[in-house]
Design a protein around this nucleic acid. Structure first.
Length: 596
RNA sequence: GGUCCUGUAGCUCAACUGGAUAGAGCAACUGCCUUCUAAGCAGUAGGUUUCAGGUUCGAGUCCUGACAGGAUCACCA
């Protein structure tokens, strides 16, 4: 039972003894006391006035007095209107810190026996990754790590969209224009090479449409009849028929693209346990259509198409199989949904996909639940908002996309010039310096994209968005580097900052206490981040922690402190802060340096 | 047009799920490096939480209705 739970139990006891009223467990809630008042926890008495039959002040005072005399951890209290502010004594804080400090498994909750799959990234193989993918990948990776820390067994999955008309477009343009270009021959990364031909296709396609319209065709006709479009459609048909030449080119180009993606993923610092390919899964789901018909969940229209009626759930009728018996998007998604379950026997399945597909996943999940899938209630769409540029939405065809590789490289360069400006690279070997720039640049970028509530759309300004001061990754990294420096010195001069080094202390400075309060909040935030699938909860927390530490650092001396117990405590507090920052940042996929 | 999401300081974001005088960071201004890393700390200024009603002890948060931005509503993926 932690401190908060103890106090809550005592408040329940107070209601019982003072007012003869039994309160339920979840009924009593403590909140952190606002900075401007004395105290740590605040109990709001307004909702309980019917029970106490007293005015707010009197009610709060009675409960406060009860706590003070029955709860040894409670040092005192004050009452402002209906708010009972409870102060905890210093020995309790030291006790809490000691427990935290000797807990080896900080940031790792015990296994809960549940298995969850987090699907993220899910790129198209016809173009390189861009800024939007960065948000997706960082989110997916962080959520997966956070769930692991919450005790889940996690499978990170990537469903690669490697087939379809858009892939054929790149292939058509490549066939006509490439003269056998390869990544090796041109020095172009494989995914960028495929993307180049996708853009070239579009250019030529537009030209062809224009020509046909000049010849008197309507725009609609021209779009259908443009030679390259016909060719792409024919190529898709041949691909599905297993034509050796087409499949050969497809495989070759995909190999290049995957090599490119691998490099990008490596730089991003993300990884996957399982890859699914749509070329393997696009035919799945038809058996589920049959099943749904048998169960009466789906129905057939006269032309043979199959539908599901979700109007009772507030949605619409939705097609699940075309009249000609071919699949639509949702058909294969139903199949993949089952496939994931059968592959890993998962309890939950998280899809990290942009919010433009909210409706799609709403439909998919409702269908799977209607079909009575055991994992139905574990399906979750982690929907995130688009990343906008100052110029508006990114459009790949208009060339306004921010390329992921370019952006990461820019970030690292910015980190380099910034670090050099500050003159902070003395004593670094060239390799160490390069590693530092990488850590800082990527930390800045990841933190920037993760600190915002996922569901909100966000603005990214390449010139201005990435800062190194204030609420940023580097600020937190800097706090860690400062502590690492202190710990080096402490080890060098042989200070004992183990538990026994500060045992028996009875006094605490306000800054020390405030730091312990924040440190002891880590687990709560970790749980919240997991429940809400929201790395931003953790990011905000780490910023709070770093800020609190820097206050402590500025206010209190460490190596100039003459009392060895106090010195030991301050170093221990520093070490605990560093450990928490390192663990928390690791869950966000962000590394922290020991020097910067 | 139907449905869903969003709207908070000049800008980018918080607000513990209904609690106190709505908080941080940038940007602006003022202090603090002879002391453990100034990528830091302390402070000043900045608000009718888009608007109008409602619910109650109490609303940025809940309900209704406007307004603004976005997404989606294909026998596309």
């Amino acid at each position: 039972m932690n401190l908060q739970e103890k106090i809550i139990a005592q408040i329940q006891e107070a209601f019982l003894q003072l007012f003869g009223h039994q309160t339920a467990a979840g009924e009593i809630d403590l909140q952190p006391t606002r900075k401007e008042f004395e105290g740590t926890f605040t109990f709001v008495v307004f909702p309980f006035l019917k029970i106490t039959k007293l005015n707010p002040e009197a009610s709060a005072n009675k409960i406060g007095e009860f706590l003070q005399s029955h709860c040894p951890e409670v040092k005192g209290f004050n009452v402002v209107k209906g708010f009972l502010n409870i102060s905890v004594n210093e020995q309790s804080w030291l006790g809490i810190f000691s427990n935290l400090y000797q807990n080896q498994a900080v940031g790792q909750l015990p296994a809960n026996g549940q298995k969850v799959m987090v699907e993220y990234s899910s790129p198209n193989t016809n173009k390189p990754l861009h800024l939007g993918h960065l948000r997706n990948n960082f989110l997916g990776y962080a959520v997966a790590e956070i769930l692991k820390a919450n005790g889940y067994e996690v499978i990170k999955a990537n469903l690669v969209n490697d087939r379809g008309i858009h892939i054929c477009k790149s292939m058509v343009a490549y066939k006509h224009l490439a003269n056998g270009e390869t990544p090796e021959s041109s020095g172009l990364k494989g995914d960028h090479l495929a993307g180049k031909y996708y853009v070239l296709f579009d250019k030529e396609y537009k030209k062809q449409i224009g020509e046909l319209m000049d010849q008197g065709q309507s725009e609609e006709e021209a779009k259908k009849n443009a030679p390259w479009m016909l060719e792409a459609q024919e190529m898709l048909r041949l691909w599905e028929a297993g034509d050796a030449d087409v499949v050969g080119l497809w495989k070759t180009m995909n190999t290049w693209v995957y090599a490119g993606f691998d490099a990008t993923y490596k730089k991003m610092g993300v990884d996957f346990d399982k890859f699914y390919y749509e070329s393997d899964t696009y035919l799945l789901g038809k058996n589920i259509v049959d099943e749904g018909l048998t169960k009466g969940v789906f129905f057939k229209k006269p032309n043979g198409s199959v539908w599901v009626d979700l109007s009772a759930e507030g949605l619409d009728e939705k097609l699940v199989l075309r009249a000609d018996g071919t699949s639509v998007y949702i058909t294969q998604d139903m199949g993949t949904c089952d496939l994931k379950y059968h592959d890993f026997n998962i309890d939950k399945s998280v899809y990290v996909v942009g919010n433009e597909q909210d409706y799609h996943f709403d439909v998919l999940f409702k269908i799977m639940r209607k079909l009575g899938r055991p994992y139905g209630n574990g399906l979750y769409h982690l929907s995130y908002g688009m990343v906008d540029l100052p110029t508006g939405k990114m459009k790949s065809r208009e060339g306004t996309v921010v390329d992921a590789d370019d952006l990461m490289e820019e970030m690292i360069q910015t980190a380099e010039s910034h670090t050099k400006e500050l003159g902070k690279i003395e004593g670094f070997s060239p390799e160490q310096a390069r590693e530092l720039y990488q850590i800082l640049g990527m930390g800045a970028l990841k933190y920037f994209l993760l600190k915002v509530d996922p569901k909100k759309r966000m603005l990214f300004n390449p010139q201005e968005s990435i800062e190194f001061q204030g609420n940023t990754g580097p600020f937190i990294q800097y706090s860690h580097a400062r502590i690492a420096s202190i710990l080096r010195k402490a080890d060098q001069i042989g200070v004992d900052y183990s538990l026994s080094g500060f045992a028996g202390l009875e006094q605490l400075e306000p800054n020390e206490r405030d730091l312990i309060v924040v440190l002891s909040d880590f687990e709560k935030k970790l749980v919240q981040a997991g429940e809400e699938y929201s790395p931003s909860v953790l990011a905000q927390y780490l910023f709070e922690l770093a800020k609190e530490y820097n206050r402590f650092y500025a206010e209190l001396p460490i190596f100039n402190e003459s009392n060895p117990k106090i010195q030991s405590l301050r170093i221990a507090l520093s070490a605990m802060t560093a450990k928490t920052i390192r663990k928390g940042m690791q869950l966000l996929g962000i590394k922290v340096p020991d020097r910067m």
